[in-house]
Design a protein around this nucleic acid. Structure first.
Lengths: 146, 146
DNA sequence: CGCCTAGTTGAAAACGGATTTCAATTTAAA
DNA sequence: TTTAAATTGAAATCCGTTTTCAACTAGGCG
């Protein structure tokens, strides 16, 4: 999904929900799209503060929740106790490789794994709505430098 | 691993670490083994309080951390903001199916998925230390009752 | 046994990220 | 405009986790 497309999707969402379009929400969405994925609320807040001190943490927090409701962002947890947000892929799901040395996060997708997940779930009588797969280890830079 | 085996493993751990064997630690381990897996600190604390009011939350918390250090328990997070602990399987890893309606948690293991994970990680230059796979959906009872 | 020292305990305080409160402000419909 | 409803941000609150600290053991030693 292109950036302008995402912006109009958000505007539509605000309209249909009877919410208002504000300068802060626009700034936060722009910075969110510019900044790349896997930012914590704090990360995004600090980036915004540098450019525009008139934005509060609470607003960033609430706006990220709106993004998630609207479907343009997803909340993630990688075990460090902080929520992170990433821009939603339009249709396909992906999982994560996380380097436990440098913190680098790589996305991947493997339909063979997804199929096996459905199979296993079916064996246990579950119908799956969503899943989480995270692989923790050392990226190439970190494993060679040991 | 049998329960008495687990208990002696914990005693050994305490000895080798220069820690002391106390009544509280014994009670907590017994209740932990009796109670089944996926308990939060709070869960275990409440169960212990019913039988013996002279046990503090802090002690339960610290003892569960000892279990994890010692290798007889593992900490898990299933997205409800609470840490949960489960007794460690002696050698094999397992993953989880979680019912988003009733909260039921089922364990499973699939070596085909594990193999594919290693393959995908290798393609990205990662060497994997551990992983987390959770499938969220509706168990058979909950999906039929809709 | 009783002493002694290091480890342990539990109530309460501190912590840290997430969330809410509320008075002042802004949006946008009438 | 005027006005009602939504939004904002600083500060307060929430809630699970973790630490503090004075009182209390465990267990080694004489």
């Amino acid at each position: 999904m292109g950036k302008s497309n995402t912006k109009s999707k958000f505007k539509d969402f605000l309209l249909t929900q009877g919410l208002k379009s504000t300068n802060q929400r626009e700034l936060i969405l722009e910075e969110f799209l510019r900044a790349g994925s896997h930012l914590s609320t704090e990360d995004l807040y600090l980036r915004l503060r540098m450019k525009n001190p008139r934005i509060g943490y609470a607003t960033v927090h609430r706006t990220l929740k709106l993004f998630a409701e609207c479907g343009i962002a997803e909340q993630r947890h990688f075990g460090d106790g902080q929520a992170r947000y990433e821009a939603s892929a339009q249709d396909e799901h992906h999982d994560h490789l996380i380097c436990i040395s440098c913190g680098k996060i790589v996305e991947f997708e493997d339909s063979r794994i997804e199929e096996l997940q459905m199979e296993v779930a079916g064996e246990h009588g579950f119908s799956i709505e969503r899943h989480r797969l995270e692989l923790y280890g050392y990226c190439s830079s970190c494993s060679t430098s040991i």
